[in-house]
């Protein structure tokens, strides 16, 4: 199962390359696709998600940051243990090893906006900073996806369409159809 996830992630990571125009570089780190989502009314917390790649030779650590919508920000890890959802602050910060890509996503690592002073509004990016041990402080802007979105791609029809064609095992048709001009 680990192998399977790793392969899918590898392929998906490579596929995500076109987003590079909006990548943020900070020293040896590349931060891509920061996003969050709409929260229910009255919610006091929200999760922020992004991908961090370390192109350097030394490990770095995401140790904190800030966001305009919240009083505090912490780096968290969520996990499932025997059907129990557990969430805690990542002790000592989230390590990004040299050459590694760490994905902060729902159900896993995330930055947690605590004590919200404003609610995320769909389509209105949220500015914030991330603090790294070595790369220092970086300003980023999170895209805001709809309530309950499982990825920032929730609204990207093209991607989902292609994914479905692939899952149907209809790769031939895809070649002939959408990419017939080859």
């Amino acid at each position: 199962m680990k192998m399977f996830s790793a392969l899918v992630m590898l392929a998906l990571t490579a596929l995500a390359v076109p987003a590079s125009a909006r990548d943020i570089t900070a020293g040896d780190l590349v931060i891509s696709n920061p996003w969050t989502r709409v929260t229910p009314p009255g919610a006091k917390v929200a999760g922020g998600f992004l991908t961090i790649t370390n192109n350097g030779k030394e490990a770095d650590r995401l140790i904190g940051g800030s966001a305009v919508i919240s009083h505090r920000l912490e780096v968290h890890e969520m996990s499932m243990e025997g059907g129990i959802m557990k969430m805690q602050e990542v002790a000592g910060g989230l390590e990004i090893k040299p050459g590694a890509t760490v994905v902060l996503k729902p159900g896993s690592y995330h930055v947690m906006f605590l004590d919200l002073k404003a609610s995320p509004v769909e389509g209105t990016p949220i500015t914030g900073t991330l603090k790294f041990e070595k790369a220092g402080e970086v300003t980023i802007a999170y895209d805001v996806a709809p309530l309950g979105a499982k990825s920032s791609e929730a609204g990207h029809e093209g991607m989902q369409h292609e994914m479905k064609s692939g899952a149907d095992g209809n790769m031939k048709k895809m070649h002939g159809g959408q990419h017939g001009h080859h």
């Binding site: 199962m1 399977f4 392969l7 899918v8 596929l15 899952a167």
Partner: peptide, 25 residues
């Protein structure tokens, strides 16, 4: 862009193959 398209197709092929294998798991 063209090169990228081709690379992308190959990658989607890989995703499909892996998804099939993963489905069984």
């Amino acid at each position: 862009t063209e090169t990228f398209r081709k690379v992308r197709l190959v990658l989607w092929g890989a995703v499909a193959a892996v998804a099939l294998a993963g489905g069984a798991l």
